[in-house]
C-alpha cells in the first residue's frame, strides 16, 4: 500500500472529548487517492464523529490534511453526505434545488443560476437514476430516493473526496445498488470514497479498504488483510460471532 504523497486524506492523532467522555482517542488513518474505504466499528466507536472532525464540523485535536494541505483550503474538492435524519423534510425545496445547492461554489452565492448549471444538476440526478423526480418536493420521496438526491448533490459539487455517513442505512435494495454503482464508477475515475458502514456482510463486496475504529484505530488496510476475525474481535469485543469471509 502506498500512502504518503499519494494520500487524499491523512489523519493523525484525532482526539475529541465531549464533557468527560472521550469520543475519539488519537485516531489515525491514511486514505490513498482512488481508494474506497469502509469505516466500521461498534456503536459509539466515534465513526460519525471521525468524519465530522475531519471536516472541521466539530472541533477536535489532531492533524488532518487533504491533498497535502489543510482541509479548509480544499473544501471545494470534498463532499459530505450526512446521515439521513439530519434535515427538515417538509422544507420547501424541490429535488433539483437541493442538487443545485451543490453547485454554488461555481456560481458564487449571489450569482444567478443559468441553464448550463441546471443541466449540470440534471446530469448528476441522472447518474443516480432520479432525473424523473427533479420537480418533486424533497419530502415527497422515499428514504432511499432522498439519499440518492443527496449523493447527486455531492456529484454536482464535482468533488473528488467523498465522505458518506451510513449511506445505506434504511434504504431500499434498488437505492443501495444505485449508490454503490455510482461510488464505484467515481472511484474508477480517480475519486476517493470514505463511508461509515455498519453491514459487515457487504464490506468485502463493496469496498477495497477498511478502517476499523473504536475511538482509536484498531486496524486499517486492504480488506483482504485487515478485515479479519482477530481484528474484528479486537474492535467489537469477543462477543461478535461472524465469519468475515462469509
Amino acid at each position: 500500500m502506498q500512502a504518503g504523497a499519494e494520500a487524499a486524506l491523512q489523519v493523525q492523532g484525532l482526539t475529541l472529548r465531549y464533557n468527560d467522555v472521550l469520543a475519539l482517542d488519537g485516531a489515525s488513518a491514511t486514505f490513498p487517492s482512488g481508494s474506497m474505504t469502509a469505516i466500521i466499528g461498534p456503536n459509539g466507536a466515534g465513526k460519525s464523529t471521525f468524519l465530522k472532525s475531519v471536516l472541521g464540523l466539530v472541533e477536535a485535536e489532531g492533524q488532518v490534511s487533504a491533498f497535502g494541505g489543510p482541509v479548509a483550503k480544499v473544501m471545494a474538492r470534498i463532499a459530505y453526505v450526512p446521515q439521513r435524519a439530519a434535515v427538515d423534510w417538509s422544507f420547501p425545496v424541490r429535488v433539483i434545488d437541493v442538487v443545485l445547492m451543490g453547485c454554488y461554489r461555481k456560481t458564487g452565492l449571489l450569482g444567478r443560476i443559468d441553464r448550463r448549471m441546471t443541466a449540470h444538476a440534471m446530469a448528476a440526478l441522472a447518474r443516480v437514476g432520479m432525473q424523473d423526480f427533479a420537480r418533486r418536493q424533497i419530502g415527497a420521496l422515499s428514504g432511499g430516493q432522498q439519499q440518492r438526491v443527496f449523493l447527486a448533490r455531492a456529484l454536482a459539487q464535482g468533488a473528488d473526496l467523498i465522505l458518506l455517513d451510513e449511506p445505506f442505512a434504511g434504504v431500499d435494495a434498488a437505492t443501495e445498488a444505485a449508490i454503490i454503482g455510482v461510488l464505484k464508477s467515481l472511484r474508477d475515475g480517480g475519486a476517493t470514497i470514505i463511508a461509515v458502514h455498519h453491514d459487515l456482510s457487504t464490506v468485502a463486496a463493496y469496498f477495497d479498504r477498511v478502517l476499523l475504529l473504536n475511538r482509536r484505530t484498531v486496524a486499517e488496510g486492504a480488506v483482504a488483510e485487515t478485515f479479519t476475525r482477530t481484528a474484528l474481535a479486537q474492535a467489537y469485543g469477543p462477543a461478535l460471532i461472524l465469519d468475515p469471509a462469509a
Partner: peptide, 22 residues
C-alpha cells in the same frame, strides 16, 4: 432577495452550507 440563496442553504442544511463556504 440578494441573500435568499445562502439563507435558504443555511436553513435547509447548515452543515452542507458550511462545506460550501457559507
Amino acid at each position: 432577495w440578494a441573500l435568499s440563496r445562502p439563507l435558504a442553504m443555511v436553513a435547509f442544511d447548515p452543515l452542507h452550507a458550511r462545506m460550501m463556504g457559507v
